[in-house]
Simulated scan of single mutants.
Amino acid sequence: MKTTGLNYRHLHFFWMVAKEGSVTRAAERLGLAVQTVSMQLAQLDQEVGKSLLEPQGRRLVPTEAGRVALAYCDQIFLLGDQLQDALDGTDTGKMRLTVGISDSLPKLIAFRLLQATQQLGQQVKLVCLEDEFESLLADLALNKLDVVLTDRAVRGGGGLRVFSHLLGESDMKLFGVQRLARRYRKNFPASLDGAPLLLPTRNNALRGRIDAWFVQHGVRPDVVGEFEDNAMLNTFGRNGMGLFFASAALRRDIEEQFNVELVGDAPELREHFYAISNERKIRHPAVEAILSAVHGGPFAGD
């Protein structure tokens, strides 16, 4: 088998120095002498035939070649950590799944999707991280995540080699606390003209469709709040600040958890749910379980 000839110990020292910006600080973290680290960096430069670090003021920063090497090191040593987690899991019998959840995705939908991982023969340990869509995609591309759950597909033509898998979709319903529901339920949706509405921000995949739906029905609601985080939006809705849309698939959960009532149906409005995966030769069994989720399962409406 052909090998690169790289000494990965030398590569790890380069990675640490590039992160710390100093041989001294990296040596302290590694518990080694400064001369030892410096000598092995020099040996790495000889191995690759070019300098990977250069001084910039008091810091050491990657050269152009060093920046390329650093990007690979990020993946190499992250995968090393994941390998260690996987090996540790052989003792406990658990499989680790690191999931990125878009802040715009309803948390109850995320829960239903992840339920599929609990049907495997091996127990799955979930590590769930919430962030903005673009940040999650970057982490996925660096193999920091196994999968991203979100409400939008990745646009084509980007530099990231990640792929969108439509898991399901659901039409929308409008909810509100009892006093608001009773007031605006009659003559819905015409009743929404001037009604207090809580909406996702304009960078949300659903927002454009909601605005178009208002235009279609000739109503101009009073938008009293816009939210990036879906859970925050629902919290304000539960406390009576305004009416809010939610997936039909979640009707019972929404009514019970937030003590709200149905105002009306908006079948023309549909919310989509995606799993975003990267290009891996070894597919994660728990990711496969999520991708196999059927439309009539976690998204069956009431």
Rank of each mutant, 00 (worst) to 15 (best):
L79D: 06
L79W: 02
G80F: 01
Q82G: 01
Q84L: 10
Q84A: 12
D85M: 11
A86K: 13
G89K: 14
T90S: 09
D91W: 11
G93W: 12
G93Y: 13
G93D: 13
K94L: 13
T98Q: 05
T98F: 05
V99H: 02
V99R: 06
G100C: 00
S102G: 11
D103H: 06
D103V: 12
L105K: 00
P106Q: 02
L108N: 14
I109H: 04
I109K: 06
I109D: 04
A110Y: 03
A110C: 12
F111P: 00
Q115P: 01
T117D: 06
T117L: 00
T117V: 11
Q118W: 00
Q118V: 04
Q118H: 11
Q119C: 05
L120W: 06
L120D: 02
G121W: 06
G121E: 15
Q123T: 14
V124I: 11
L126Q: 08
V127M: 14
V127A: 08
C128P: 02
L129A: 02
L129R: 09
E132Q: 03
E134Y: 14
S135K: 11
L136K: 01
L136M: 12
D139Q: 15
D139S: 11
A141T: 05
A141G: 09
K144R: 15
K144E: 09
L145R: 05
D146P: 00
V148P: 07
V148Y: 05
L149T: 03
A153E: 06
V154W: 13
R155S: 13
R155V: 13
R155Y: 07
R155N: 10
G157H: 09
G157T: 10
G157W: 07
G158Q: 15
G159H: 13
G159I: 15
R161L: 03
F163W: 10
F163G: 01
S164Q: 04
H165G: 10
L167V: 07
G168N: 06
K173T: 00
K173W: 03
L174P: 07
G176A: 14
V177Q: 14
Q178E: 12
R179A: 09
R179S: 14
L180P: 08
R183D: 01
R183H: 04
Y184N: 04
Y184H: 15
Y184Q: 00
R185F: 04
R185W: 03
N187V: 08
A190F: 13
A190V: 08
A190M: 01
L192I: 00
A195D: 11
A195R: 02
L197S: 00
P200F: 08
P200G: 05
T201I: 09
